[in-house]
Design a protein around this nucleic acid. Structure first.
Lengths: 214, 214, 214, 214
DNA sequence: TATGAATGAGGATTCATTCAT
DNA sequence: TATGAATGAATCCTCATTCAT
């Protein structure tokens, strides 16, 4: 790796203007999720991204801007993907609900983005502006999308009639809770549950709760 | 200023060795819930409790000890109360689940203690020791208690057989999520749901999900 | 810990709530005059005042507020004193001008306050707000006062008629320049002039320049 | 834009090895005068000169060297010009003094170079080396030159005998003060004086102060 | 006990300077 | 030559903690 004899010294740093922002955001997601906003030091973010503290300031004006970028750039693509998913769906309401649950799991719950809900919950009060953004751009679309799926089932006679607004919140809670869990108390747990079993049980309970009894 | 002849002179401000700690903890619960641990200033905690910063240090050795006291003294009485509730219950499994849900709502979800879950989620990683305490003393007992209620239903034929460990987690999520909500993003929400309707819908979905179909 | 012999250990610090602000301002006057605003470190100000950096912040919200306090509290008393001086003067215009020059010398030019004009000149552009204050509260009153003295002389026939507004500026320049000098280039000068001779020559030239020729 | 067939291809941006330094110095004069040394960012200097920060370092080793160049290259030509002016003068002492005042006004007071005295006053303490240079190369020659003019008047009987060293300082103060003014508090002034009237009044007062009474 | 002035370590931010391109 | 991305030392400011009163 280091051709110490070839005469070419290892350069002290490289120019990577394009890659830096996303690397910094990725490092910041992890640290904000782990420690919270206030307890995260920019020194650590920079170090984890492999740059110096000064470099971070070339790309983000302040810690607050970095935080906003984390939420914004972290979640928007996932939401768009989810909207495409639902809009193009053609099966039954039951199948759609199934698809939404497993899709959320795949896109968010099982990867780095699952940290965002925990970050938002912990810091919403300190960042009303970004909380509003999150509410408007993430939660409202998410709830609307899921409400449409349930309403479709009620209309088709698959699901029992119920208070859709409340049902949406109740039914999404186990998904969100699971994500939050991974980034907070999961480390304490001795007998961890298998995610697949958790998802199965969740689908079973939710659909049985929704469906009309034949 | 005051007639000193009444025997015992009225002190300007009373010594309240006993009341101080709980007043400080109460002030701290609110501020930790609102701002998070790191962003909460002890100056503010003291001020909200109506004492000086120095006084706070007479009762708690450090900010960390205050935090631990918040979690410990905040949640333990509620857990004990809940355990009494369940242990002495004599009705059907359905009625017991119903009682647990509404009891949690009454004891925790609807008052100041609902802040504790949010605090723990936000700070678990920074305080493994107190997170362990919370897990062992709050979550495990809670899940065990609820698991017993479900198992009783399965045994009696009221509920379908299912993975009880997973079901417990799924079914408690909407309760916990609701509490967390109140202390984070609720302020952004335009069309708030009525808590009573939320609880009703939740009970309806959960029980229908659990029960065998006749 | 070890009460060497007097039995009373040296306390680590004292409470001096009253004295601190003026001590800090005094230290700051010197350093701002010496190094300029930006190059003055608050650490040094605090150290010169014999306190820690944190203590400085108990009394001044920011470096900028400290700077404002330096100008405001440094100069206002001197101006008030000067106004009293002129208002109560009963002699001839020549004597009044003489009195103003020597008074300025005594009150400002020869002591610590002579640093303020240099500070203002160096930093006016960076602190428009405090520059306005200085202009309105120090320079305008000063010029007005001096203009009245000259006008009195013109009216009484002691002085030649001239453009009073311009004359005021011209005649005050050597006084102000001398003060500025002390805090800037005086250190370079090999053959320093005697202040008393400078003042005498100045009075001689100024009065001869003003007076009508008999 | 230009026909490239003309033999020599026009470079996108021309190498201007010779013009760069003076363009950078010109930009630096303005910014040092406006903000002071410490508060001036090299980024801004480079930008105002239309180059990048890196380019600045091709011509000046450090901020300090740039500062020195500002003083040195800014003022030396003016001094040389002034010396030529005085050395070749043939009229009376009164006419010479008149010529020096108006010459200074023309060469320095009314253009960009008038910023140098303010810069030196503000930064002399931080740059003893450059202050010495300024003292030796600018102030001493200036005072010597002016002293010779006054001495010539005293010798010829035009001027009263007086302390020439002090008189020089007193008489130059209004000129220097005016220049300093333009670069500091002039922005605060509501009723600005006309420079021409100021100069006239100054000449009138100074010469009347100097001349013997016939 | 209670207070709040004083402390100082810690972290965000700036910017002169370097150096890969 | 010229650029501007990258660096890191320097400095403002905060706040948990101590301690004289």
């Amino acid at each position: 790796m280091e051709p110490s004899k070839s005469g070419k010294a290892e350069p002290r740093w490289e120019r990577r203007k394009e890659a830096r922002p996303s690397e910094l955001v990725a490092a910041a997601v992890e640290l904000f999720a782990e420690k919270g906003y206030a307890a995260t030091r920019l020194d650590d973010v920079a170090q984890r991204a492999g740059v110096s503290k000064g470099t971070l300031y070339l790309y983000f004006d302040s810690k607050e801007e970095l935080f906003k970028a984390v939420v914004r750039t972290g979640i928007v693509p996932a939401i768009q993907e989810a909207e495409r998913l639902v809009d193009g769906f053609a099966g039954s309401a039951t199948e759609l609900v199934h698809e939404i649950f497993t899709g959320w799991w795949r896109l968010i719950g099982a990867n780095r983005l699952s940290a965002i809900p925990k970050i938002m919950i912990a810091e919403a009060r300190n960042f009303p502006e970004i909380a509003d953004f999150y509410h408007d751009e993430v939660m409202e679309p998410g709830k609307r999308m899921f409400a449409r799926a349930i309403q479709r089932g009620v209309d088709s006679g698959e699901f029992r009639p119920l208070d859709v607004q409340c049902a949406v919140r109740v039914l999404l809670a186990p998904l969100v809770m699971h994500a939050i869990w991974q980034h907070s108390l999961a480390g304490c747990e001795k007998n961890l549950v298998d995610p697949a079993r958790y998802l199965d049980t969740y689908l079973d309970l939710a659909l049985k709760g929704l469906q009309v009894r034949r």
